[in-house]
Design a protein around this nucleic acid. Structure first.
Length: 298
DNA sequence: GCAATAATAT
DNA sequence: AATATTATTG
């Protein structure tokens, strides 16, 4: 299962990769000593190569695990199936939690209830191709921290009229993502009892819900009624990652139909034509990178 | 052994 | 700060 997913993921990725012609001619310098050795290639200057894969904390001397950043590895020999199963070897690009993606996440969490809102289940409910359990787990961790700080703050600031908004920079930044999303308070959310309780729970025979991996089945059921027919497609061309990511302008072109955005998080290096979205943060609208067609939800 | 969470690391 | 990765625990 996972194998197939990964394989598929890479295949599609590979297909969308820019051809050698489209790439800047710095492939040579991207070859690290490690690789040069592994592939029996002669590289001119080790130090130069090392400099390229940059902040990759030189310690990234993973023997057979090169910088994925240099996606253009296969430039010379595309013919040979060098990457039999590179999905296993290659590092997957950094996931960017766009507002849309995050919304899906929040919706999933909300609809699952705090009890069932665990990474795996959330991931399944979100049904975003390419999204891993780790991705979700990581995000969930941060999300929980955010919620914790929220309830802490709301109670403490509510009492005395101290500083209006003692929000840390972190909070402000986080809010861009988190607070702008309607928070169906997960703690009050479904799972227990309440009005808006249309979870799968009520559709399942009690004995089934004991406590097994039946949750998986349950999640599937939930999926049918929740995110039924809107699976988020596989993310768009991840291009490259690692210290040095290389954009070419094929980027936004291929970005169109996909939902998940992976790759270089830095807006400064982003392609000139990427989609933007105005998010109203009170006084000044802030421009963020969404790279989304912003269609169905939100 | 897997999955969730906590703790680090990049 | 945002994600990833690793360690720990259930």
């Amino acid at each position: 299962m996972i194998e197939d997913e990964e394989h598929n993921w890479f295949n599609r990725w590979e297909e969308e990769l820019p051809g050698p012609e489209e790439l800047m001619p710095l492939s040579q310098s991207l070859i690290t000593p490690d690789l040069a050795l592994a592939f029996d290639i002669q590289y001119p200057n080790p130090s130069a190569a090392a400099g390229v894969h940059t902040q990759g904390t030189a310690a990234s001397h993973h023997p057979a695990q090169p910088l994925l950043g240099a996606v253009d590895f296969d430039s010379p020999d595309h013919s040979s199936p060098v990457g039999d199963e590179p999905a296993r070897t290659l590092k997957r690009p950094r996931l960017v939690w766009t507002p849309q993606l995050h919304k899906r996440f929040v919706d999933a969490v909300a609809h699952l209830g705090i009890k069932n809102a665990v990474p795996k289940t959330i991931m399944q409910l979100m049904s975003v191709d390419g999204l891993t359990r780790e991705n979700v787990a990581s995000h969930l961790q941060k999300y929980r921290l955010y919620l914790k700080r929220m309830q802490g703050l709301s109670s403490s600031t509510a009492s005395v009229a101290g500083p209006p908004c003692p929000m840390s920079a972190a909070d402000a930044a986080t809010e861009q993502l988190f607070a702008t999303t309607p928070i169906h308070n997960p703690f009050l959310a479904r799972g227990a009892s309440g009005p808006g309780q249309e979870t799968f729970m009520q559709f399942m025979a009690p004995p089934l819900l004991q406590h097994h991996q039946h949750m998986a089945a349950a999640a599937a059921a939930a999926q049918q009624q929740f995110y039924r027919q809107r699976p988020m497609g596989h993310f768009g061309s991840p291009m490259a990652t690692g210290g040095g990511m290389i954009y070419d302008n094929g980027f936004q072109t291929r970005m169109g139909s996909s939902g998940l955005v992976m790759g270089h998080p830095s807006p400064s290096a982003a392609p000139p034509n990427s989609y933007g979205e105005e998010i109203d943060s009170g006084s000044g609208g802030r421009r963020i990178l969404t790279l989304f067609p912003t269609s169905s939800e939100d």
